[in-house]
Structure formats: C-alpha cells, structure tokens
Nucleic acid binder design. Structure first.
Length: 259
DNA sequence: ATGGTCGGTCTCCGA
C-alpha cells in the first residue's frame, strides 16, 4: 500500500499539477493540506473519476485538509480532539480497509509565526493535543500513520541554512521538542529512517530563488506506529514536482507499506 | 542591508 502526503497550497490553483502527479505516482491513499477551499467547492468529481474516494475537511480561504483513497474508508473523523472552540480545519483521519485496517491521520500543523506570540502558543497547544491523540491511538494498539505538513524542522541537518531559522517557529526548541516527544512515544520518522540527511528537503520557498539554490527544509513528515513501521518497505520524496509549471512550494512525500 | 513570491480574497493576510 502506497500512502502519500502533499501540501498543495490551494486546490483551485493546483488541479492540473495534482492530477498529473496522481497519474504517475499512483498512490493508494493521499492526504492533502492547504486545500484552501470549503467542502462544497472542492473539485471532487475529477478525483472520483480516476478512482479516489474523497473526504474533505475544508475552510474558507485558509487551511483545509483532505483524504483521497482508492481503498475503502471507514470511521472518517474531522478535527483534532481536545478543543471544541478550535475552528481551524487542520486534521482528518479515517481507517483504510485493505485486508487489515490501517488508520490514516492527515494533518496540517500550525505554522506558529511570529514567535513568541498567540500564534506560537496556538501551535504548541495544538501539538500537545496531537500528542494526546497519538497516545490514545498507541494505547489502542491499532496500526496507524500520521502524515502531513508538520511545520517543524526536526534537526539542523533538515535545513540547507539552519542559521536562517534560529528564531523561526518551525525551528525553535519548543517546537522541535514537541515533535521529538511524539517520536519518543514509539513513532518512526519514516524519511529519517530510510533517507538519512543532510540535504533531504520537502519545501522550498517561492521567494529568493530558494528552489534554484536548493535552499530547502524538511517539514513534511510521515510518522509510523510500531505496527506500521514493521511493514515499512520504501520511502520517497517526489522532488521533481517542485520544478514544474505552477508548483506548490511543497512536494509529495510517500511511503510503501507491506500488505 | 534590502527586497523578494505565491494563493485566496471584503486590496491585505497567511505562509
């Protein structure tokens, strides 16, 4: 089973790029971030026509996540538990039924800039809520995968120029510690495990010729539960997507699991 | 040191 994450930075602007990548990469399950669309406006028909079940959790203008799956989905849940007042669409999960069930969590973790400030506080609070959800899922002993845009640079080697990120919410010690706490619970960073850095990136800013200079960062991650990690066969980053017409600033990251 | 790019949208905000 091939699972992928792709921050598409606006579904309206990325329809063609997404369709082209889906056709060649042929993932079974994809989680999307920053669809920047309400559910009713999401162009589901074209994706359904090429075999995907489409589940969205959208919002006007910003954020928004989705799951596309060629395999049957059940128990679709929208929103990260733990704060009823949180209206930002950043979390969607579902169980993929492929013989044995696999829970897939798609997430768009808050950016958190500027830090310090209320946006950074929101990021850290959101990460604490995610850790609580991860603890619940681990306790259930069902295999699961949490993949998406984490907006966290885990280590200095995950940035071409780490010195440029010292005061940024993506690289501040509290952000990295909160990410590491989830790994310490027993999750596997699939890209780190199979593609040791430095120089492994998933995002290149639109500004300052970042792509041309390979001034990237690794912030899109695939975290595997112990049972899912036992099934890990392959990992990849579809870097070439960044060099095409009208690209997102992120590229797809994927894993292949046995079964 | 400065200015620089996208997407979506109540022409500025979020990234």
């Amino acid at each position: 089973m091939k699972l992928a994450t792709f921050n598409i930075n606006g579904i309206k602007a990325r329809g063609e790029a997404l369709a082209a990548w889906l056709a060649e990469a042929a993932p079974d399950v994809v989680v999307l971030q920053e669809i920047k669309s309400v559910d009713e406006a999401f162009p589901r028909e074209g994706l359904e026509a090429v075999g995907y079940q489409v589940e969205t959790h959208g919002q006007k203008g910003f954020n928004g996540v989705a799951i596309l799956s060629k395999l049957p989905l059940s128990d679709v849940r929208r929103g990260l538990p733990g704060d009823e007042s949180d209206e930002q669409a950043r979390w969607i999960e579902a169980v993929v039924d492929a013989g044995r069930p696999l829970r897939v969590c798609g997430l768009y973790l808050p950016n958190g800039n500027p830090a310090p400030g209320p946006k950074y506080e929101y990021k850290l609070a959101w990460m604490a809520r995610m850790e609580a959800r991860v603890r619940e899922l681990l306790a259930s002993e069902e295999p699961f995968v949490c993949l998406g845009d984490y907006n966290v640079i885990p280590q200095a080697e995950d940035a071409k120029k780490p010195e440029n990120w010292i005061t940024d919410a993506l690289f501040l010690p509290e952000s990295r510690a909160a990410y590491q706490r989830m790994l310490n619970l027993g999750l596997t960073d699939a890209v780190r495990a199979r593609m040791p850095g430095p120089g492994v990136f998933t995002f290149w800013d639109y500004q300052q010729l970042s792509w041309e200079r390979n001034n990237g960062i690794r912030i899109d991650h695939v975290l595997l539960s112990p049972q899912a990690a036992d099934r890990l066969e392959d990992v990849g980053i579809d870097k070439a997507v960044r060099g095409r017409e009208k690209p997102s600033d992120h590229v797809p990251v994927w894993v292949r699991l046995a079964g």
